[in-house]
Simulated assay, not measured.
Amino acid sequence: MATPAEHTHHIRLRSTQMEMPANGGSQNQDDYDHKLKAAQIELDRIQQEREELERKKQELEELTGRKRDFISQQVELSEKLSNSLTLIDREIFEIRQECDDLEQCRICFAAHLEKIQKINPENWTRDNLHDKLERATMVVDIATDEYDQAAAHFQKGRSGAIFGAPSKRSRQAAKTSGDSDFAMHFRNGLAFNLPIIILGGIALLAYLTK
């Protein structure tokens, strides 16, 4: 029996199909290195952002603390200035009142001094001695009373040293009439009965010059 003929098929493969690329491993390594570098860059960026956020956070906390301190200082200083302004206004008001009182007192004292200096006892005669002495004594007594009243009024003020200590009589008069009433009339230009004094002085001068 004849043996069947054997057929052999030869498969021809191209050399390019069987050969692995020589640079394949190098390319993969480059890709890995590139990705690693990109990841590192991203991590660095995130770290920088975190540090920037932390810096801004600390800066904000510092500014918030400074703002809190400023508000506290602002409130404290505002209270001090407000209280000081109130006291200053009160002090200015009292000083102005005292100045007004002193001005009225000066006018009154000047009028008294003028009348007293015009009294000349050397010109009195025996016939008119009694009358002129009575009138002159009245002028001096009125001036003395008003001087003592002024001393009592200004005793506790800044101008107390001008008048010295008031006499016992003036202190008793001040207790009876009250400082407030005196000051009120004083500021209104009616202290010490100035109109009566002026009229009385004019009449007295007219009498003395006869």
Rank of each mutant, 00 (worst) to 15 (best):
R50Y: 01
A161W: 14
R96G: 07
I162A: 07
Q104R: 11
I88P: 00
E76D: 13
E146F: 00
Q73A: 08
L81F: 07
R55Y: 03
R96K: 12
T64K: 12
E62T: 05
A152E: 06
T144K: 08
C99T: 06
C105I: 06
R169K: 08
E52W: 04
D145A: 02
C108K: 01
A39V: 03
S72F: 05
E52D: 14
R50P: 00
K168D: 14
E59D: 12
N128E: 15
D100H: 08
D33F: 09
R90G: 15
G65D: 13
T86V: 14
R90L: 15
I46E: 08
F70K: 05
L102K: 07
E42M: 02
A150D: 01
E49P: 00
Q149C: 04
A151P: 00
L113P: 02
S167N: 10
K37W: 05
D44E: 13
A39Y: 03
I88G: 00
V75L: 04
I92K: 09
S167L: 04
S159A: 15
A110T: 10
I41L: 06
S84H: 06
D100Q: 12
L113Q: 11
L63W: 05
S159Y: 13
G160Q: 01
D145Q: 06
D100R: 09
Q149I: 05
L85R: 10
N128P: 09
H153N: 02
P121S: 13
L60N: 03
F154Y: 04
D31G: 07
L36T: 09
K56D: 05
E76N: 11
F70R: 05
D101H: 06
R68A: 15
S159C: 09
D131L: 14
R90P: 04
D69T: 03
I119N: 07
A152Y: 00
H130M: 12
H153E: 11
A165R: 09
M138G: 14
K56P: 01
V140R: 08
Q48A: 11
A136H: 07
I71Y: 12
S159E: 05
Q58F: 04
I107T: 09
A38E: 13
E76P: 00
I92R: 08
K118G: 14
D141E: 14
R158P: 06
E62Y: 02
T86F: 10
E61T: 01
K67A: 15
F109N: 08
C99H: 06
H34V: 05
P166A: 04
E94M: 10
K156T: 14
E98K: 00
L36D: 04
E76S: 14
K67N: 13
E49N: 03
L53D: 13
R135E: 15
